[in-house]
Amino acid sequence: MTGRNGSPAEDPHKHRAILDQAIRTFAEVGFRGADVQVIADRAGVGKGTVYRYFGNKEDLFWATTFEVLEQLDRHMLQAMEGIEGAAEKIRAACVAHGAFFEANPQHLEVFVQDRAEFRGAAPQSHLEYHEKMIARFAKIFEQGVADGEFRPMDTRKAVVSLGGVLHGTTFFHCYSKIDQTLTEMSEYAVDIFLRGIRAPVRQGVQGNLQ
C-alpha cells in the first residue's frame, strides 16, 4: 500500500477533488461497485492521475476512510475547546461525533463500509491514529479520576467501551426508523454512559446489582 493518503500529490486541489469524489462514489455504490474512471471523471482529472496519486482502488478507499477519520477527529477536538471538566469534555466530543455523521451521511456510509468490506483489516496508519485518539481520551478520563469526577478505573477500557457505545448508537440509527436525530441519540447515549441507569440505592434496600 502507498500509505494513508497515497503518493504525494503534485496538485493539492486535484488531490482534494479526488478524495471528495471518492467519498461520494464509495458512499453511493460501495467499494466493489466503485469505478475509478467515474471517480476521475467526477473529480475532473484523468484516470492515470488517480492511480499516480493513490496507487490503486483499495489504497484510494483507505485514503478516504483516513480522511473521514481525520475530519471526525478535528470536529470532536473543536467541540471540546474551552470546556472545563472531564465529563463535559467527553459529552461534547460524543455529541460532536453524532452531529458530524448526521451532517455528513456520505462519510458515515464510507465509515460503515470500512468494517463491512474489510472486516476491520485497516492499514497500520489507521491503527496508529486510533491509538492516538484512545490515548488522548484516556488522559481526559485520567484527569476525571484525579479530580474526583470519576471513580478509579482502567481508563483505556473506559475509552474503548465508550467508543463501542458511540459506534453502536451510530450504526443502530442507520438501520432503525426512530424519531430522534443521531445527535440526540449520541447525547442520550453518553449521558447514560456517564450517569448510569441505576437509581440511587435507598437506605436499607439491597439491589441485585450491588
Rank of each mutant, 00 (worst) to 15 (best):
R4G: 11
S7Q: 12
A9M: 04
P12Y: 08
K14G: 01
H15M: 08
H15Y: 07
I18E: 04
A22C: 09
I23S: 02
F26S: 01
V29W: 05
F31L: 00
F31D: 09
R32M: 12
V36C: 06
D41S: 13
G44S: 05
K47A: 13
G48C: 05
Y51K: 09
Y53S: 01
F54V: 09
F54P: 08
G55E: 05
E58P: 05
F61N: 02
F61Q: 06
T64W: 01
E67Y: 09
V68Q: 00
D73Y: 13
H75L: 07
L77K: 14
I83L: 06
E88K: 13
K89D: 02
K89N: 05
I90W: 01
R91C: 08
A92Q: 04
V95T: 13
A96P: 06
A96M: 04
G98W: 05
F101Q: 03
L108V: 01
V110I: 08
F111N: 02
V112A: 11
Q113K: 11
Q113E: 15
R119K: 14
G120V: 04
Q124N: 08
Q124K: 13
E128I: 10
M133E: 11
I134G: 01
A138G: 06
Q143L: 11
E149H: 04
R151E: 15
M153R: 14
R156S: 05
K157V: 10
A158Q: 14
S161I: 00
S161K: 02
G163W: 07
G163S: 10
H167N: 10
G168P: 04
T169V: 12
T170H: 12
S176M: 14
K177Y: 14
K177L: 12
D179P: 01
Q180D: 15
S186N: 07
S186A: 15
E187W: 00
V190M: 06
R195L: 13
R198N: 12
V201P: 02
R202E: 15
N208D: 14
